[in-house]
Design a protein around this nucleic acid. Structure first.
Lengths: 129, 129
DNA sequence: TCATATCGACTACGTCTGTAAACATGAAGA
DNA sequence: TCTTCATGTTTACAGACGTAGTCGATATGA
């Protein structure tokens, strides 16, 4: 059963993702406001943000609603979906789809703080309840 | 103090990574042998593999040792380092560097099998011992 | 020795990405 | 009304990436 319109979400690049984060955090939002949030941090110009915004629009990752002579942008895909997809891609590509080896790796690299461990432990308990 | 030669490992692309996996699994290995392992699966031609190999050589991800009139390729970076780096990038980019939210996400998506859970639990115990 | 298969090096080329300038147009102030 | 600012649209351009063809040299079998 293939869905009628299998709109495979087009891949969001790294720079585009930075813009998405801003939009997820606050929306609807204008181009200038997005720029306020990221241009300083990434050394971008407003023009760059505009380009990224229009690419995100054509990728249907965000919606642009006209407001006067400008646009208000809002997310069309949920952050949870995005990070879920990216996480899955990584786990599939590097760990054969199994999450445990990823966890083992992070643990080995001491990339897990005590807080992380405690939190994960709590989650584990919950999952097993 | 910046290190003398800050050889920031150049980014390995998706296609290149597929080649790396073959080389990690068996090495030293020739271009033709690499092709045997991936060309069918990915629908590539030998020429494509050769290109990827030479890009990997220039990125210093693999070494090419001459053997007669051909090369034997071997990894210069460890698989563990690679997947560690990639995992870290993802965790940094999407989860603010904390692993717990990633774990929570995988759990939420039911991307964790019972085996995964058991394994992670075991690892946790070990880490806390 | 001559054709052929093999192999790396070089070249190619369309797409995507990062980064931005130029341009057109409408709004707003002088 | 004339100028200037703000804003989206179009165009640009270099570098990375995916994918592969061509070239030149060597090994090899007839």
């Amino acid at each position: 059963m293939t869905q009628a319109s299998e709109t495979r979400p087009e891949r969001i690049s790294e720079a585009e993702h930075a813009v998405m984060e801003v939009i997820w955090e606050r929306n609807p939002i204008t181009a200038a406001e997005v720029c306020d949030q990221v241009c300083a941090a990434r050394g971008w110009s407003l023009a760059t943000v505009k380009t990224l915004l229009s690419r995100l629009v054509s990728k249907q990752a965000i919606a642009a609603e006209p407001e006067g002579r400008r646009f208000l942008y809002s997310p069309l895909i949920a952050r949870a979906d995005y990070i879920g997809g990216e996480s899955r891609r990584l786990v599939d590509r590097l760990f054969g789809g199994r999450a445990a080896p990823l966890f083992a790796h992070l643990a080995e690299q001491e990339a897990l703080t005590d807080d992380d461990l405690a939190e994960i432990e709590a989650l584990l308990k919950e999952l097993k309840q």
